[in-house]
């Protein structure tokens, strides 16, 4: 059963139609890659999936329910984990605080948040010293890892990542993709937006915008 379904999605910026009649189904335990040329609407689609934007027509169904009818804040803070292209971390906080904050926003209770956040940061390849460093003092790859840890902190079923390997070297790119792969294996639905053929190859399914083709 699909966890996320797109039904005839249309979206435009002014008179420019970006997404036209898009329909697709995403399932748990798979890693998807949305590919397309620049300006094809990849990030727009990700925004729609993350509930940051609303489609002009069509429906996005989360577990069969239109996300338009659900609490968008709850949807964003609990059901999906978004990894933005520019990470979007709170720069004045440490890596650990950023992860803990997302747990607070999601209303995670009954666990030692600090311990869980540290475990997550360690699991994505940061050490304790880096975890307690302000994110501004981390490298791009480290910030990407913090963003992934933050997205995983409240255990969402869907992970959305916008160009997660865009600014990374090949070695780090492989490490990050390994993390996503393991998340999919854990039963999560991982949706990546990328124009890297290497990333696309590592995914279970690929949706190319405009050509509407599946790998």
């Amino acid at each position: 059963m699909s966890i996320l379904t797109l039904e005839n999605i249309n979206f435009s910026y002014g008179k420019t139609k970006v997404l036209k009649d898009i329909s697709y189904e995403f399932e748990n335990g798979k890693m998807y890659c949305i590919v397309g040329k620049s300006g094809a609407g990849k990030t727009t689609l990700l925004s729609l999936l993350s509930g940051l934007a609303k489609p002009h027509s069509g429906k996005i169904l989360y577990k069969g329910e239109d996300i338009k009818n659900t609490d968008k804040y709850k949807y964003r803070s609990k059901y999906i984990g978004v990894i933005f292209q520019s990470f979007n971390l709170i720069t004045k906080y440490t890596a650990l605080e950023n992860v803990m904050l997302s747990m607070d926003i999601a209303g995670v209770k009954g666990i030692n948040k600090k311990k869980k956040a540290m475990e997550l940061l360690l699991s994505v390849g940061l050490d304790e010293d880096e975890a307690n460093r302000r994110v501004l003092k981390l490298s791009g790859g480290q910030m990407q890892r913090v963003a992934i840890a933050r997205a995983l902190s409240y255990d969402p079923e869907i992970i959305l990542a916008d160009e997660p390997t865009g600014n990374l070297d090949t070695e780090t790119q492989n490490e990050i993709m390994e993390i996503f792969n393991s998340l999919a294996e854990q039963g999560k639905c991982v949706i990546l937006v990328s124009h890297s053929p290497d990333v696309a190859k590592m995914c279970d399914e690929c949706y190319e915008l405009k050509r509407n083709s599946k790998k």
Binding site: Y73, S77, K78, F84, N88, I90, R150
Partner: peptide, 11 residues
């Protein structure tokens, strides 16, 4: 910061 917090689901 406001954008990030609201994007993360903070009301």
């Amino acid at each position: 910061e406001i954008g990030v917090l609201t994007a993360m689901g903070m009301k």
